[in-house]
């Protein structure tokens, strides 16, 4: 018997019953009971079944997402929505999220390496690769923070407002003169110390509902006069000076004047909720990794009879987070 009783005291998840000698050796003679059919320790099994149930939580969210998306006549085009890149770049479809995905894949790879070093009982190796994994996880969270910030503060997407949408018919954006020519009044008001210019139908009661703007993008380039086709994506510009969304006027081939409509609000709420829930998993993974890294550094696992199994268990969790991202990436960014 290699271990002493004092040793048990430091294993919290083991509880009080010391199953070790017949539980933790994989196929040695010490297992006097029946065959352990799954040849895995109970800890790993429990982690697997927890992950299975967590997969169903995510499945619930993603299936709900699918149902809502199917119920909408339009849906924002992902490569239009996710086309910003740090440094003020725009129109780079899916490049940033590809980088994010790489970061997560890398951190998964470093995690596998940490587990492998654990099998060799190489404490320094485990620490090195776990530290890299933590950096990877933190980097991913940082990317996500940047992405959320861009969407919320620059583009104006919130859980209740979605300025991204898709045109249901082709048309041309109108200039101020054209809108006035169609009988609208030009109105200029002070909001937040800046002048907002918009056009109103005479006698319209609900100003917020009825005002029209001239199309300009976030860089203040006026886009009036540009044409678009059916199913082309658009973004209702959020004016950072006046803090107003600027739904712009456009003319369809039959000559009628329309205004850009907001997209399905479920897009924003689902995006923030599901990526947020995933991000929460990444965050808790980073916290657990940190705790286990400290335990590794203290030499806690080195003398355990099941060695670095704790690293393996957190590894399973970490890969699961990566696995979920595969599907989040698929449904939010690719499809």
């Amino acid at each position: 018997m290699a271990h002493d009783t004092a040793h048990t005291d430091v294993i919290p998840e083991q509880g009080h019953l010391e199953h070790k000698d017949y539980m933790d050796s994989h196929d040695g003679p010490a297992w006097g009971g029946g065959k352990r059919p799954f040849k895995a320790s109970y800890g790993k099994l429990m982690m697997w079944y927890f992950l299975l149930s967590d997969a169903f939580t995510f499945a619930g969210f993603l299936i709900a997402y699918g149902a809502i998306r199917f119920s909408m006549p339009t849906w924002p085009v992902p490569d239009h929505v996710f086309s910003a890149f740090p440094g003020g770049f725009h129109g780079w479809p899916l490049i940033f999220v590809t980088v994010m995905t790489f970061v997560l894949i890398l951190s998964s790879v470093t995690m596998v390496r940490a587990v492998q070093e654990g099998h060799r009982r190489n404490k320094r190796g485990v620490m090195f690769w776990m530290a890299l994994t933590i950096i990877g996880g933190a980097a991913f969270l940082g990317c996500q923070a940047w992405e959320w910030n861009t969407m919320i503060n620059e583009e104006g997407v919130t859980v209740t407002k979605n300025p991204f949408s898709t045109h249901l018919q082709g048309g041309t954006y109108l200039t101020g003169a054209e809108i006035e020519g169609a009988g609208f009044e030009k109105v200029m008001t002070e909001t937040h110390g800046k002048t907002a210019t918009y056009y109103l139908e005479p006698g319209a009661e609900d100003i917020e509902e009825n005002r029209l703007f001239v199309k300009q993008n976030h860089q203040k380039e006026v886009l009036a006069g540009e044409s678009f086709k059916e199913e082309d994506p658009y973004l209702i510009t959020y004016n950072h000076d006046t803090h107003l969304y600027e739904p712009s006027a456009f003319k369809t081939p039959d000559g009628s004047i329309h205004k850009e409509a907001f997209g399905p609000i479920a897009f924003g709420s689902l995006f923030f909720f599901i990526t947020g829930f995933h991000g929460f998993h990444v965050f808790s993974g980073v916290v657990f990794l940190l705790i286990i890294l400290i335990n590794v550094a203290s030499g806690l696992y080195h003398n355990r009879s099941n060695n670095y199994e704790m690293v393996e268990k957190i590894g399973l969790y970490w890969h699961f987070v990566d696995l979920v991202w595969v599907f989040v990436f698929l449904v939010f960014y690719l499809l």
């Binding site: 109970y42 800890g43 099994l45 429990m46």
Partner: peptide
């Protein structure tokens, strides 16, 4: 003897 993890 008991459940896999009595603590949980």
């Amino acid at each position: 003897r008991d459940m896999a993890s009595p603590l949980l």
